[in-house]
Computed example of a mutant assay.
Amino acid sequence: MTTPARASLRRMIDEKQLVVAPGVFDGISAQLAKRTGHHAAYLTGAGVAASGFGLPDIGLVTQTEMTGRARMMVRALGDVPLIADADTGYGAPINVTRTVQEYEAAGVAAIQLEDQAFPKRCGHLPDKELVSPEQFELTLRAALDARTDAGMLVIARTDARGPLGLDEAIDRASRYAAAGADVIFIEAPQDTAEIERIAAEVQAPLLLNLVIGGLTPLESAERLQELGYAIAIHPSALLAHAALGMLSSLCELNGKEVGPFLPAGPEDFFNLVGMAEWFEIGERYRTEAQA
């Protein structure tokens, strides 16, 4: 038997009512999303990495850490559906199987999996690497086989737009829909025409990611409803304003100007939690391996 939150998300999608899901990352953001009357929330991996662990969104947070956050936020949200980021599934199909089992037990209404190679990185950063569509289809098959409640939706995300172009992204999206994904997510379309083309060519319920300062224009809910999108996630809507408030307060306390600390986009934001330093570590070992 499915949960009320899962049934609610499925019903909104079946009724073609756009689901607007603000990004939540801790207990207070989940509670506030519920108390302000939102009909769904999105567990943002970037937000959990930054707020929970002081880390950038480059594949450093583990499945168990994300599951713990998901369980806590499901409890805070009650019957409000939680759409949960699960990155690449955290490994091979056997790992994906356990990830789906743990997320399902945590009570999420939908789990999102992507076709990046591990370690992944934020979808609005450059230099992403992908697995083959065949490999990701195995990930999807493992996920669909692992869930015991078909009410929990499986969302398939492709990051192909950046490294391989929109044609490849649409081809992959259609493959993933045919493989059984409940919702399709093409990450980072770069203009309104691309958003419209995806809506016209991908025959499946669609999710769009709207990141402040990211690559995708911030289309209105009304326009996305007209185009037929099923879900609009806003992962940075709460996080960006929370970070701005903290920076402003901290600079006020010690008399510094806040301007130099303000991020202009995702890359600047993740540098506030050490992305440049982590990339330096990764480059150091990559160079040594090539020597």
Rank of each mutant, 00 (worst) to 15 (best):
A221L: 06
K256F: 14
Q225Y: 03
L247C: 04
P260V: 06
F25I: 06
A230M: 06
F185G: 01
L18S: 07
E196R: 13
T36C: 04
A199L: 06
I212S: 10
L138N: 11
S132Q: 09
C251A: 14
M275T: 00
L207Q: 13
T67A: 10
T44V: 13
D79N: 13
L164T: 12
A179L: 01
D191T: 07
Q63W: 09
A21P: 00
Q63M: 15
V74A: 07
E267P: 06
D167Y: 03
D171I: 15
A7P: 11
A156E: 05
S8G: 11
V202E: 01
D145S: 09
E168Y: 04
T36S: 06
I58G: 06
L206T: 14
S132N: 09
S8H: 09
P93K: 13
V96F: 05
N254R: 12
A40Q: 11
N95S: 15
G47C: 07
G259M: 07
L253S: 14
Y285A: 08
A221P: 08
D127E: 11
Y176C: 00
R284G: 07
D127Q: 13
A46I: 11
Q31H: 14
V183H: 04
H39R: 15
R175N: 02
P119M: 12
T64H: 13
R286L: 11
G23I: 04
P81R: 03
E196W: 00
V131P: 11
A150D: 09
P81A: 02
G47R: 07
T216I: 08
G52P: 00
G107N: 00
G107I: 01
D145T: 03
L207K: 09
I155F: 10
E288M: 14
P189Q: 05
D115W: 08
A86F: 03
G23N: 00
R98G: 01
I58A: 05
Q116T: 02
K256R: 15
L272N: 12
T139C: 06
P93L: 08
F118S: 14
R141E: 14
N271W: 10
P205S: 06
T216Q: 07
Y42K: 09
G68L: 02
I94D: 15
E219L: 12
C251Q: 15
E104H: 06
S249N: 14
A143R: 05
A230K: 05
S8N: 12
A49Y: 14
G274Q: 09
A49T: 12
N95C: 01
F279G: 08
V48T: 12
Q101Y: 02
E283I: 02
I186W: 12
T97G: 04
M66D: 02
A109E: 08
L140D: 05
A86M: 02
T62D: 04
E267L: 14
F25H: 00
E283S: 10
T64M: 00
I231A: 09
G52N: 03
R10F: 10
G180R: 04
K34C: 07
T36Q: 04
T192C: 06
A143Q: 14
P81G: 10
Q135H: 09
R197S: 11
I13Q: 04
M275P: 09
E102P: 00
E226Y: 11
E194C: 05
K16A: 10
D57A: 03
V24T: 03
L77M: 03
C122F: 05
T44S: 13
F118A: 13
E114T: 01
D87N: 00
T287L: 14
D127H: 15
V108D: 05
D14S: 10
A177L: 09
V154E: 06
I233T: 15
A177W: 14
